[in-house]
């Protein structure tokens, strides 16, 4: 059986540090630490669970989950992300889509996928040399209705089973869940729900995620905004690494960035903290 050798979760955006230099530095350093942790385990593949912000997946696309199956992942370039190619991993991605389908979880293959900031920014930290093959898994938050937290949990459990039973024994897999925390995208008022963010982070570190799995997407959106739905990318990875010990690395309620920014390492049994 293959092995998950490192895992983490993080917000997936950066903005201008002007006027918030100290907060921005803490976020940036936290993301650096998370990236170094993931690649210190020398993964053969990096599976990133994130979202697309309507740059690749058109409004009205019915799929709950999608997966980039191409050999090349050229960033879309939004937010001035450099258009420097990451390597895909078609064999892993297609095999996972097939395995998931057989397990009752539909994941739509996306042969052409140009990662927007949601995938590309975390990769710039986790894969700065662009040498680790990447499998991008996307939760379609623009779908109506949005996938439910429990569906994302099942996706994560399916991913863990796939790695455990269907991958080569020597394969080392890194997992990264990207997005969140609370934010309202496309609204006039810049808001962060710090209480919501801290409550979620406490549940992550306390391993008390059952109530979060039971929430509806509408409930999360009401409390944390349309961008807050992205905590389901975290839930997906947490479900794939249920034995992990999460450690919060950074949290900053960044109103000027229109988002709560957070990140955590998921320490895995048998793998020393980096």
């Amino acid at each position: 059986m293959a092995e998950i050798t490192s895992a983490a979760v993080t917000s997936h955006i950066l903005m201008s540090p002007r006027t918030v230099e100290d907060q921005a530095a803490r976020v940036f350093n936290g993301m650096l630490q998370i990236g170094r942790h993931l690649r210190a385990a020398k993964p053969d593949v990096l599976v990133i669970v994130s979202s697309d912000h309507l740059f690749n997946i058109p409004l009205g696309t019915p799929a709950r989950f999608l997966i980039g199956t191409g050999a090349s992942l050229m960033p879309f370039g939004d937010m001035d992300v450099p258009r420097e190619e990451f390597r895909g991993y078609p064999e892993f991605a297609n095999a996972f889509a097939n395995f998931a389908a057989a397990s009752g979880v539909a994941i739509e293959p996306l042969e052409r996928f140009s990662p927007d900031h949601g995938t590309a920014v975390p990769l710039m930290f986790a894969n700065p040399d662009h040498d680790i093959p990447v499998v991008p898994v996307l939760v379609n938050y623009s779908r109506d209705p949005t996938p439910a937290p429990n569906e994302c949990w099942q996706l994560g459990e399916t991913l863990a089973r796939f790695i455990s039973v269907a991958r080569p024994a020597t394969e080392r897999v890194a997992l990264l869940g990207a997005g969140g925390l609370s934010h309202w995208v496309g609204y006039a008022q810049s808001r962060v729900n710090e209480a919501f963010d801290r409550s979620f982070l406490a549940a992550v570190t306390g391993g008390e995620l059952a109530p979060w799995r039971a929430k509806s997407a509408a409930e999360i959106e009401r409390e944390a905004g349309n961008g807050g739905l992205e905590i389901m990318s975290w839930l997906t990875v947490l479900a794939a690494a249920p034995q992990s010990r999460p450690e919060i690395i950074y949290y900053e309620p960044m109103v000027s960035w229109m988002t709560g920014m957070g990140g955590a390492l998921l320490h895995l049994p048998g793998h020393a903290a980096q």
């Binding site: 540090p17 002007r18 409004l59 937010m79 001035d80 623009s142 609204y187």
Partner: peptide
């Protein structure tokens, strides 16, 4: 307009927002 697409439009039409919502200071 869809909220995410509103953001696309703001990025496209408002240089101040495009100058703020960027990672270039970290590159």
């Amino acid at each position: 307009a869809d909220p995410i697409l509103r953001m696309h439009y703001l990025m496209a039409s408002n240089p101040e927002i495009a100058g703020h919502v960027t990672i270039r200071d970290f590159l």
